[in-house]
Design a binder for these strands. Structure first.
Length: 337
DNA sequence: AATTCGGGGTC
DNA sequence: GACCCAGAATT
């Protein structure tokens, strides 16, 4: 029976592997703690390739925590549009204001302090401490959870409280002392992204393979049952008058600030929709149908007219509604130029 | 402890 | 279709 390598030996293997195989990512080298914070917000539940263009645009438009703190929320949401989970954008905006107000414009390096910022939970607090300040802070994302569930052969569902606690304890047990959190956490995460993948993991090229306890890695990590997909239908109005389009703004914490085509109470009969698309969110699947509509005598408080030629660059819309605008504006003004 | 978030890519 | 993703907030 071969003895397990020490945490030191494991970190060394991981670090060497990362130096050789790790990707260059826009937020990975020589960037400010603020840039790390931005990247962590964008990467919550979102894949690296989707984030890269948004991150670059964001850092150009809001290069410092001060510029973000001073920006109007509409500009923040507009820049986030298409990335989904818009409460992240609102929380990032609030977090920037909190950094300016409570921390003198400098991000703290302590995970407990970081976790007091809106939108910063256990993962993001540890990630900023490790990536921005090289602290030995645990930060378990989906990649690291998968790597550790396999490495330690943990069969408890990772999305259960007990399984989550077990994974975090294992992650903490592997940390270096003093400093070195940046390389260690980056390497573990990158291993999950490139080698220890959900399907067909590359065990034969994995630097941790000699010590890995997984007997059937493809069956790990285990997760709880998903909710069944719910189908919904949304009927919306295409209401254009004098070159302007009527939209209405959503309220509440869920999709507050986002603009939609005005929603109809019921599905019109006797005429086909101008446009139809399907867009998903969480466990829902929504069919959006857009019907022609007459202009109202007076828009409601939460409705506003947008110029057709600029609405796509001014208003933040859910993806399905944005697709409808793209299709119908070009149809509406085919030779406008 | 369970639910919600209004994207998007992949197979 | 189902599954996955650099999760957090809310109830």
């Amino acid at each position: 029976m071969n003895a397990l390598s020490s945490p030191e030996a494991l970190r060394l293997k991981l670090g060497e592997w990362f130096q050789k195989h790790g990707r260059q990512l826009p937020w990975r080298d020589a960037v400010s703690p603020y840039a790390v914070l931005v990247s962590e917000f964008m990467l919550q539940q979102t894949q690296v390739v989707s984030v890269i263009p948004y991150f670059k645009r964001w850092m150009t438009r809001f290069p410092t925590v001060q510029t973000l703190a001073e920006a109007p929320e509409e500009a923040v949401l507009q820049l986030w549009q298409g990335l989904g989970y818009y409460s992240r954008a609102r929380n990032l905006h609030k977090a920037a204001k909190a950094v300016v107000d409570r921390f003198g414009g400098e991000l703290p390096d302590d995970p407990a302090q970081l976790a007091t910022l809106p939108g910063v939970g256990p993962y993001s607090a540890g990630a900023v401490a490790a990536f921005a300040f090289d602290k030995p802070a645990a930060a378990v994302d989906a990649n690291i959870a998968r790597v550790l569930a396999r490495f330690f052969n943990i069969h408890t569902p990772i999305d259960s409280p007990g399984g989550n606690r077990e994974i975090w304890e294992r992650a903490a047990g592997l940390l270096p002392s003093g400093s070195g959190g940046r390389l260690h956490t980056s390497a573990l995460m990158e291993l999950g992204a490139l080698v220890c993948t959900p399907k067909k993991p590359g065990c034969l090229v994995c630097p941790l393979h000699p010590d890995c306890l997984a007997t059937d890695p493809e069956l790990l990590p285990r997760k709880g049952a998903r909710k069944a997909t719910v189908r919904l239908q949304e009927n919306a109005a295409w209401c254009v008058s004098e070159g302007r389009l009527l939209l209405e703004q959503q309220t509440g914490r869920r999709s507050g600030g986002l603009w939609k085509l005005p929603l109809l109470e019921s599905e019109p009969e006797g005429e086909p929709p101008l446009f139809e698309t399907v867009y998903p969110f969480t466990h829902h699947r929504i069919t959006l149908r857009v019907y022609p509509s007459q202009a109202p005598a007076a828009p409601k408080d939460f409705q506003r007219w947008f110029a057709l030629e600029s609405v796509l660059s001014e208003a933040a819309l859910p993806a399905g509604h944005r697709r409808a605008l793209l299709a119908l504006i070009s149809k509406h003004t085919p030779a406008a130029s």
